[in-house]
Write a protein that binds this DNA or RNA. Structure first.
Lengths: 160, 160
DNA sequence: CACTTTGTTCAGTACTTTTTGAACAATCTG
DNA sequence: CAGATTGTTCAAAAAGTACTGAACAAAGTG
């Protein structure tokens, strides 16, 4: 029932499984992307299930998440009712999708949080206030810097 | 037995718990760093245990990890046998420690991995070889770019 | 040296996340 | 439309991760 993976496939998939780990994404998502990345032709859900030996449920959900930040794109196959997918190989598109999907929300949240803390500062005794004010200013600085590095880093990935 | 946290402490700790999540570090590590970050004076293990309501084991291990990338530094308190800690507030130092401790190893591993895959390329039929070669080259490019962005991003954090 | 204080370690437990698989919905096909 | 094919959803199970607490080690104290 299950097709064995070639050495090459295993190695490449392994790389993406590790990357998934770093990004705190499920293992299966790394497997799926890796498989599609190294597949000359688009694959359908059942191809993935057979090749990777994971369940159809995982595969369906995994591809959904990968599509959500455009790491994988659907390919129309004439005369075939099944959905086929290839890996998006342009790093810029993936990173862009991932950032706006998973990173930006955190940064935005942080910003309003720091704002809230600044209000709490008013209630402190003058003595402690000084220290707290310094720390909050520092937090704000980090915040700003994170927001500044992002677009820059994205831009660093220019050609593709 | 346990000291309640002030509003300010809660808010700040919350921020660092979120950051810990993003970096896939345990929640307790975020709590510890947050607490120390907003504490005017150095704290000992038992202070942390009482303030955060976590176990001594977690605290000990958490501080060990925080020390491993210099996010926290021991402070000598004359006449006190206990170990005290403050948060390292210089972003550059923390990020530097974190990178060389948790990021660099991944990048290095990736590099040798890509090298290994290139060897496997030899065993492919000319037809598939072309596609595989393109993909591997792409992987290599990402690799290189990641290695290039890092020092640059670190440098971006100049003043402190 | 017996006792106290402090920090570490680690097996077991609690919790969280991911995966499975079966039921379902949607769409196609003859 | 009845039956088949394909994809999705979600409750339950499995796997993975972090936390606890008690036992231990190390070092100080009287």
């Amino acid at each position: 029932m299950s097709t064995p993976l070639s050495e090459m496939e295993k190695e490449v998939i392994d790389i993406f499984v590790r990357i998934a780990g770093v990004l705190s994404l499920p293992r299966s998502i790394g497997e799926l992307y890796g498989l599609l990345f190294i597949s000359p032709d688009p694959l359908c859900i059942d191809d993935c299930v057979r090749k990777l030996g994971i369940s159809k449920g995982s595969t369906s959900q995994g591809l959904k998440i990968l599509r959500s930040f455009a790491a994988v794109k659907p390919v129309y196959m004439p005369g075939d009712r099944r959905d086929f997918f290839t890996a998006e190989a342009e790093l810029r598109k993936i990173v862009g999708g991932f950032v706006s999907e998973q990173v930006r929300p955190h940064l935005d949240n942080g910003k309003e949080r720091v704002a809230r803390i600044q209000l709490l500062l008013a209630e402190e005794t003058p003595e402690r206030k000084e220290f707290f004010a310094e720390r909050i200013k520092r937090l704000e600085g980090w915040q700003k810097r994170a927001n500044a590095v992002l677009p820059f880093a994205l831009n660093f990935i220019k050609p593709d």
